[in-house]
């Protein structure tokens, strides 16, 4: 139960949004390329390991953010919308206990791997020392 203390803007899963609101957003999409084609090309470029394919599912806030060339170019309204969407996904711990095992959290912070994974050249076990991006030593 204590491990549910992840308060962040990382949202997984779909949250509904009315299509009328979406139309107002200025889309960067070019004519001639369908989203399905893009999706197909995208999926072709990754190893089909079912353990990691969930990472390629786009949620609504990610879809909104994808429409703007950079975070500088994102209008305040869209930012507000994304904050609202992701606030809904924050799961507060049951029983009102907000203070978890901080040592578990420290392990996550100290880990240099930080959720990165590739099937080439890297050991599954995270290294004990952090601070370098060199694959040979990590």
């Amino acid at each position: 139960m204590r491990k549910t203390l992840f308060l962040g803007l990382l949202a997984i899963g779909l949250v509904g949004i009315s299509p009328a609101q979406q139309k107002k957003q200025p889309t960067k999409k070019e004519a001639g390329v369908k989203p399905e084609e893009v999706r197909q090309v995208l999926l072709s470029g990754f190893e089909q390991d079912p353990k990691f394919l969930w990472k390629l599912e786009q949620d609504e806030s990610q879809r909104i953010c994808s429409q703007y060339p950079s975070r500088e170019a994102m209008p305040a309204q869209a930012i507000q919308k994304v904050i609202e969407l992701d606030n809904k996904n924050i799961v507060y711990p049951q029983w009102g206990i907000f203070w978890g095992d901080w040592k578990e959290g420290k392990k996550l912070v100290d880990s240099p791997r930080g959720g990165r994974f590739a099937s080439y050249g890297f050991p599954i076990k995270p290294p004990t020392r952090a601070g370098t991006a060199t694959p040979a030593t990590s």
Binding site: L10, K55, Q58, Q62, C65, S66, Q67
Partner: peptide, 11 residues
């Protein structure tokens, strides 16, 4: 479009 597509657990 892929260049600007936000994906993954860290967005």
């Amino acid at each position: 479009q892929i260049y600007y597509a936000r994906l993954g657990p860290w967005d």
